[in-house]
Simulated scan of single mutants.
Amino acid sequence: MSYIPYGKQDIQQPDIDAVVEVLTSDFLTQGPKVPAFESAVAQKVGAKHALAVNSATSALHIACLALDLGEGDWLWTTPVTFVASANCGLYCGAKVDFVDIDPNTYNISVDALTNKLEKAAKENSLPKVLVVVHLCGQPCEMQAIKALADKYGVKIIEDASHAIGGKYQGDYIGNGFYSDVTVFSFHPVKIITTAEGGMALTNSDELAGKMDSLRSHGITRDPELMTHEPDGSWYYQQVDLGFNYRMTELQAALGLSQLGRLDDYVAKRHTLAERYDGLLKDLPLTCPYQHPDTYSGLHLYVIRLKLDEMSVSHKAVFDSLRAQGVGVNLHYIPVHTQPYYQQFGFEADDFPEAMNYYREAISLPMYPNLTEREQSKVVSALKEALSL
C-alpha cells in the first residue's frame, strides 16, 4: 500500500547542487551562505534584520531573552500550538498562561485576549510577552492584537513557523509591522526547508544585536562591546550567557535555494486547498476558513468533523485514514493538557474553544508535490472512514 504523508519536503537538483557546493568549499559553518540566506529572507519579507539559527525553538528562546523575559514575568500564547511556543517562556524562568482560540481561524481570539488583558491589568498580572501563533499558516488579526499590546505595554513575538510566504493585509509575514520579533521554521514539513533550522526577524537594532550574541555563546569580537581594548586580533569576549544555536552553511545553502520557490510553493498549496474545498463540500465537516485580511501560507489543511452529524468517532476516522495509508495528523494537542503543564494548575476546560477544536480536528496531507491522484485518494479514504 502506498503511503501519503501529511507533509513532505520537495528537494530538487538545484538544492542538491547548492549543498554539494558548500561541502566542497572551505566553510561548513560560519561562512558566507548564512548571511546570504539571512539577507535574502529579510529582503523578501521586508524586515531589517534576520538571524538564522538551528531551529525555530531556538529562535523563540533567544527572542524571549532579548525581550528581557525572566523570573516573575508572564508569557501568554495560544493553547493550540506546538509546545515550543509556550516552553520558550519556561526556559527563561517566566510563568506561562494561555488565551483561548477563535473558533473560525483557530488562532488567538481577539475577544478572549481583550477580556483577559482587562482582567490582568486590574490584577497587576499583565504578560511581558505575547506569542501569537499563525496556525496552519493563517496570520492572526495582527492590527487588533498590536493595538491591545500597545495599550497594555506587552511585547509581541509572532510564531510564524507555519507562515513564511503568507501575507497580512497584502504584506509578507515577517516584516515586523505589528511585532517585536517574528520567528520562522524551516523543518522538513514546513513551507521551505533547511532540514532543521529557524530564523528570528526584527526591525530593532538592539534586539538583533542581543539575539546575534545569544545564538553564539554570548561571545563578541566587536571592540565596542568589550570591557577593554582587545589584547590582539585574536581576541574575543563572552559578554552574555549564550548558546550554540547557529545555523550551518549546509542548511543555509539549502534554504537559499528553496527560497527562490517560496511563492510557487504557497500558490500550489492554495490550488490544493481549493480542490480540497470542492471535493469535501458535501461531507459532514468544516473546511479551513480564510480570513479576508490574510493570505495563508497553508502549511496545514485542517478539517473539523461535525461529530453530531456522524455515527463514527473522531478517533475511528483518524485510525481508518491511517490504516488506508493516509498519514493524517492532529495539530495540536492543547498545550495546557500536557502532563508537564498540569503541574501549573491548568484544567482541560479552561480553554473550551481549544478543546472543541482538539476533539474534531484532523490535518489532511498538504505539500506542493501532492498529486491530484493522491489528493483524490485522500478524499476517497476520508469518505470510507466517515461511512464506517
Rank of each mutant, 00 (worst) to 15 (best):
T105I: 12
L90N: 08
G46Q: 09
G31H: 10
D68Y: 03
P79D: 10
L69W: 00
S39N: 15
G31R: 08
V45I: 15
D102M: 00
P103S: 14
D102C: 13
K48L: 12
V96F: 11
N104G: 11
L90E: 11
L90C: 08
L65K: 15
P32A: 08
G46W: 03
P35C: 12
H61S: 13
I62M: 11
K44C: 09
N107T: 15
L60W: 10
P35I: 09
N107A: 14
V41W: 07
C88W: 00
Q30V: 03
W74K: 12
G89F: 03
I108F: 06
K95F: 02
V45S: 06
F98Y: 08
V53H: 02
D73K: 12
L67P: 09
G70D: 07
K33E: 12
G46M: 08
V53Y: 01
A94M: 02
P32G: 07
F37D: 00
W76I: 02
A47T: 06
S55N: 08
A47Q: 09
G93N: 03
L51S: 01
G46D: 14
A112Y: 08
L90T: 15
D68F: 05
V53A: 12
T78W: 03
D111S: 12
G31Q: 09
A50Y: 03
W74L: 13
T57S: 07
Q30I: 06
D100L: 06
L69A: 02
A40W: 01
A52D: 02
E71V: 12
